[in-house]
């Protein structure tokens, strides 16, 4: 049988996720048999498939509903295959995600699903004020803090999170996302974040980038 390229695998997983086809997606991940190399396979095939879906949303080719469905399915899929193979999630960096001020939690949910689908362990800190988010990040010694917002005032309050972390002397990296940051691509720098991306799937590569840049 000819060897399938990574690109073919990525395209197959992407199609299965967008089609909400759990059975096919599971078969694709199990194809190589045992659990060895499972995390690498997730990184090489599942993460790019989710990236492709996120990029397609950015170009207007798929909808947020499809991103949500595929992310939810992928999260369940990765849970199942990791448990089946008795493989642990990536524990580093120590990460948490929170919605700042806003009660609209879908963005946080999508990013959480993307990171978990990539094999990461991510604490869900729910929603909170800047002060609450800083306190919990400090208590749990979070190394990468992901913040999701919907409204512009909430985006501007990321600066309070940043200064709160600095006042406590914490080296926590802050990754932000949400509509205001997409509409104004320079806003994340203005509020003192370390990175931002236009889609939920970007979170995986952003976390990797900011973590590697840590001293």
């Amino acid at each position: 049988m000819p060897h399938r390229s990574d690109q073919e695998d990525i395209a197959s997983i992407r199609a299965a996720l967008l089609g909400a086809d759990y059975v096919t997606a599971l078969a694709l991940l199990r194809r190589d048999g045992d659990g060895s190399g499972l995390l690498a396979r997730i990184e090489q095939q599942v993460v790019p498939a989710l990236d492709d879906i996120g990029d397609a949303w950015g170009r207007g080719e798929v909808s947020l509903a499809e991103v949500y469905i595929s992310g939810r399915l992928c999260e369940r899929l990765i849970d199942d295959v990791l448990r089946e193979a008795n493989v642990s999630r990536r524990a580093q960096p120590k990460m948490a995600i929170a919605a700042l001020d806003d009660y609209h939690l879908l963005g946080k949910r999508l990013v959480h699903a993307s990171l978990r689908a990539a094999g990461y362990e991510v604490a869900d800190h729910g929603r909170g004020t800047a002060e609450e988010i800083v306190r919990r990040a400090a208590d749990e010694e979070i190394e990468v803090l992901l913040i999701s917002v919907l409204m512009l005032p909430s985006a501007l309050r990321v600066a309070e999170v940043r200064s709160g972390l600095a006042q406590r002397g914490l080296p926590t990296k802050v990754v932000v996302g949400g509509a205001p940051f997409r509409l104004d691509p320079d806003l994340w720098r203005q509020v003192g974040a370390d990175a931002s991306g236009p889609t939920a799937a970007c979170a995986v590569s952003l976390v990797d980038t900011v973590w590697k840049s840590s001293p």
Partner: peptide
């Protein structure tokens, strides 16, 4: 939920 510097937002 009222804020000082933006539109009132939906709560729970």
């Amino acid at each position: 939920v009222f804020v000082e510097d933006g539109p009132p937002n939906s709560g729970e």
